[in-house]
Design a protein around this nucleic acid. Structure first.
Lengths: 336, 336
DNA sequence: CTGAAAGCGCTTACAG
DNA sequence: CTGAAAGCGCTTACAG
């Protein structure tokens, strides 16, 4: 079924001009409702398919948004960013845009090579998922199409970022522990590894401060080196009554470690995580954690991106999206 | 940094025509090497960016391939298809194509609505990941751009599909068990649920046949209903010495069930899986399984797609890609 | 409300 | 080896 019907063809069938057809099909002013209806019907009957490329060429808009993910976040089970990407592509679709995924290879990241879709003007803007090298960011800043970071921020001025409120999430979760009678609360995570781990720590710390619980250095526990490589975790000599872990995977590890040492979770010790990923549910008991609000994040970033693409030069700075606590079975109410 | 340099601009700078510039930049015949070099340098110096949309309009090729995944495969931890998609987008990129992901919503699938990217001629072909409703396939068959299925096939004539060799994988894995002395081997999976489960069963069965091991009906065990909903698995009264599971998740479940009943894996009973997904490695012991050859699959499907897009009307039928066995710790060598 | 003209930035024959 | 002309299918002023 070959199909090369153009607006011109429709126009000829109806004895009008292609300008009128264009206006009708785009629901613009200047065509009577009656004619509009007739044109649309004819288009349908003739199996007309709109040609975005022609419009794109004319209006200098591809109606595509590039989505960049660094290859290293792409590994086997790190499905968080791909989940984000899926949601992004759904949301973009509702706005008549398409998302084009670009996996940024280590080599290109290092050599500061921009994606081919940039060089070919195939995208109107870039959404960058997750962390990316500083140098690369600087190159991106210089290009002439808008960029927004998602789930990552850096101190570069003038770049907008939509991120989870890690701080507030950990704060709320720690508050929840305190409300359940916990006073000896440890935090697990290397504060120098990523800014999320750091921010989550600060939220935890704020909760301690508010409740006048002193921060105990023995209760800030390393889980990885500064490059993110997991290390063997050592439980503190005197066990706290609860662990706030910087992610579910670590919470899962801690729980297994506690169980291996003969403790029951949550009867002897409570544990909370962050992310609500698969580790939160394969664990026994299932882990109370914070879930990133993916829909809110993607809706927000797409909204801002499209405004920018349409010419707005408003800046948004760091936009924080609140997560939500998922209550499960890894916390026990105790007597203070 | 506004940038609207066109071939015309380069041509003017150099006092040649834009035709020559076009030929030089595309490495076509008919320009002296010397001039070609000069033009390329000038293009770089002027910060020229190629405009694919103009080429697309002219040659009626978008250089995009649509990738369709049904929404139901998109759930939380089903990252297999998104992994495939990532790999696809990398491979497409090396061929100067881009992949545009389209999540097919349940409603659109039911109402037989084709993706917007089809109606807007934004893609030159479709790769369909995973299963999709029969009716929808029929609609897809009628459109005028090529389609290829990946990791799914159906009995529709004339549609090409690149799929894992489920049959052969299970056959090899069962052979491996037999070689290790196992004779009482059960298969876990509902044969009516999906064609993968069925094909894997048949591979298992072929191995039994070859080794003259009778098929025992008590050793074909249901793990889900026909809609794919998991059910509580019942271990057979007389325990086999090994279980061939249709996927790692079920292998994981079986292992936990065995352990809960006081059996040790693999000392008392061996278990193998399929897929090499996260369940294979979070399990204790880690599971011997079959890994889909993602690179081989994606390379193949992209190669075929691009041939079709370029005008070839060759058909490929069902193309089987062999998986590879990942040996881990869930199988014990026993004395027959 | 309707349409003629120009142009978006390329490529494709074709002629020299 | 080089280039003038036509055209891909739209949209955007502008004129009527």
């Amino acid at each position: 079924m070959k199909n090369n019907v153009t607006m011109q063809d429709i126009a000829e069938q109806l004895g009008v001009s292609k300008v009128t057809v264009s206006k009708a099909l785009n629901d613009k002013e200047g065509v009577s409702d009656e004619l509009k209806e007739k044109i649309k019907n004819m288009a349908r009957d003739m199996g007309y398919r709109y040609n975005v490329m022609a419009r794109s060429l004319k209006v200098s808009h591809s109606f595509n948004i590039g989505v960049i993910i660094a290859e290293r976040f792409t590994g086997e089970y790190k499905s968080f960013y791909t989940g984000l990407y899926q949601q992004l592509s759904k949301v973009l679709d509702t706005q008549q845009y398409s998302g084009i995924l670009h996996i940024l290879s280590k080599e290109d990241e290092k050599a500061l090579n921009l994606p081919r879709i940039y060089h070919e003007r195939k995208v109107d803007g870039f959404i960058i998922l997750g962390q990316i090298h500083k140098k690369y960011i600087e190159v991106l800043q210089k290009i002439d199409i808008p960029i927004i970071f998602l789930d990552f921020y850096d101190d570069h001025v003038g770049i907008d970022a939509v991120i989870t409120d890690n701080f507030y999430g950990a704060y709320e979760l720690t508050n929840y522990l305190v409300m359940n009678g916990h006073q000896q609360i440890a935090y697990v995570g290397n504060l120098q590894a990523t800014s999320s781990i750091q921010d989550r720590f600060l939220g935890y710390y704020k909760s301690l401060l508010e409740h006048r619980i002193p921060l105990n250095n023995d209760y800030v526990i390393n889980d990885r080196d500064e490059n993110g490589k997991f290390i063997d975790i050592e439980l503190p000599a005197k066990l706290p009554s609860a662990f706030v872990c910087n992610c579910d995977q670590i919470a899962y590890t801690i729980i297994n470690k506690l169980k291996a040492s003969g403790y029951r979770v949550p009867e002897d010790c409570s544990v909370v995580g962050f992310d609500n990923d698969i580790y939160a549910t394969i664990s026994e008991p299932k882990i109370t954690t914070v879930e990133v609000n993916v829909e809110d994040m993607t809706n927000t970033v797409v909204k801002y991106m499209i405004e920018k693409v349409k010419g707005s030069d408003k800046t948004y700075g760091r936009v924080l999206i609140k997560g939500k606590i998922i209550y499960r079975d890894s916390v026990k109410k105790i007597n203070a």
